[in-house]
Simulated assay, not measured.
Amino acid sequence: MKKTEGKQSKGVKKNVLKLLIKIVVLITAAVGGAAVYRISVNVRLNKLIDNSKTINITNNTGSIEGIVYELINQLKEKDKELSKKNDEIIKLKEENAGLKVSNSSSEAAVGQDTSSTADNSDNDTKASTDAEVMDLFGDGEARTVYSLDNDEGSFKIAGEDYYSGVTIGNAESGCVYVNLKKKYKHISFDVGRVDECPINDGKLLLIKDEGNPKKYDLDAEKSLMSFELDVTGTDRLKIQIDSDWTTYGIVNVKVE
C-alpha cells in the first residue's frame, strides 16, 4: 500500500511539474525571451522532473513557487542583458557611420569667385597634372615648377606625393606667371602648405594682366583649398603667395 502511494505521489509530482513547464514557457514569451531561453527552461525543468523525488510537493509547495520565481527572475535578467547588448550594437553602428562620414569629408577651402572640393579618391590622378598644362607656367620669384617630364622630383601636401605642380615659398613672398595667351576661359587649382614647412598662414593674390588683385586667405592647417577663376581674355595670370617664410604648393591645375 505504501508502495502504491509512493508511485502516485511521484506521478502527481511529474504532472504538476509538466504543467509548470507550460506555464514558464508562456511567461518566457511574455517577458520577451527568445526561443533559446524557452528550450533552456524546458531542459532544466525536465531534469527537475527526473529528480522529483527530492521535491516534497505536499509539505513544501513553496519550493515550486521558488523555482518559478527564480526562473522568471533569470529570464528578466537575460532580457535586460539582451537589451543592453542591443543598445551597445546600435551605438557601435552609429559611431562607425560617423567615422565613415568624417573620413569622407573634404577640407577644401572656398575662394571668392567660386569653389570646388578637391577629389582625393584617386591618388594616381591626384599626383599628376598634364605636362601640357604645366608648360603654361613660366617665370616668377621663389617658385619651383614640377612636371612629370622634368627631374624636379616631387613634394608632399598632407602626406600625398605630387609630381606635377608649383611650389612658392621659403621667402616672404613669391609668385609664378601662367601664360594663358587669351586661349582659355577658366582655370582651377588647389593650394596647400607643403609638409614639414613652418605652419604659417598666408595670402593668395590672383592678378590678371596687371589688373586689380583678387585676395584670399590661406589656412596653413588645411590640407587643400580649392580656387576657380574666370580668365576669359587673359594673356598672363600672376599667382602670388605671401607665404611668410613657409612654402605652399599649387596642384591639380586645370584649364578650359
Rank of each mutant, 00 (worst) to 15 (best):
Val101Arg: 15
Val101Leu: 14
Ser104Phe: 02
Ser105Asp: 14
Ser106Met: 11
Glu107Thr: 11
Ala108Thr: 12
Ala109Val: 12
Val110Ser: 15
Gly111Phe: 03
Gln112His: 13
Gln112Thr: 14
Asp113Arg: 08
Asp113Ala: 04
Asp113Gly: 02
Thr114Lys: 10
Thr114Gln: 06
Ser116Trp: 01
Thr117His: 09
Asp119Tyr: 04
Asp119Leu: 07
Ser121Pro: 07
Asp122Glu: 11
Ser128Pro: 04
Thr129Glu: 09
Asp130His: 15
Val133Leu: 05
Asp135Phe: 12
Leu136Cys: 01
Asp139Leu: 07
Gly140Lys: 03
Glu141Gly: 14
Thr144Ala: 12
Val145Gln: 08
Tyr146Pro: 00
Ser147Pro: 14
Ser154Val: 02
Phe155Gln: 03
Lys156Ser: 04
Lys156Asp: 07
Lys156Val: 02
Ile157Tyr: 11
Ala158Asp: 06
Ala158Trp: 10
Gly159Pro: 00
Gly159Glu: 02
Gly159His: 08
Tyr163Asn: 01
Thr167Glu: 08
Gly169Trp: 04
Asn170Val: 01
Ala171Asp: 11
Glu172His: 06
Val176Arg: 02
Val176Lys: 02
Tyr177Gln: 02
Tyr177Asp: 00
Asn179His: 10
Leu180Trp: 05
Tyr184His: 09
Lys185His: 09
His186Arg: 13
His186Lys: 13
Ile187Lys: 11
Ile187Gly: 03
Ser188Tyr: 08
Ser188Met: 08
Ser188Val: 05
Glu196Leu: 15
Glu196His: 15
Cys197Phe: 11
Pro198Asn: 13
Ile199Ala: 15
Asn200Val: 04
Asn200Gln: 11
Asp201Leu: 06
Gly202Met: 00
Gly202Lys: 01
Gly202Phe: 01
Lys203Ser: 01
Lys208Gln: 05
Asp209His: 09
Glu210Val: 13
Pro213Val: 03
Tyr216Gln: 14
Asp217Val: 06
Asp219Gln: 02
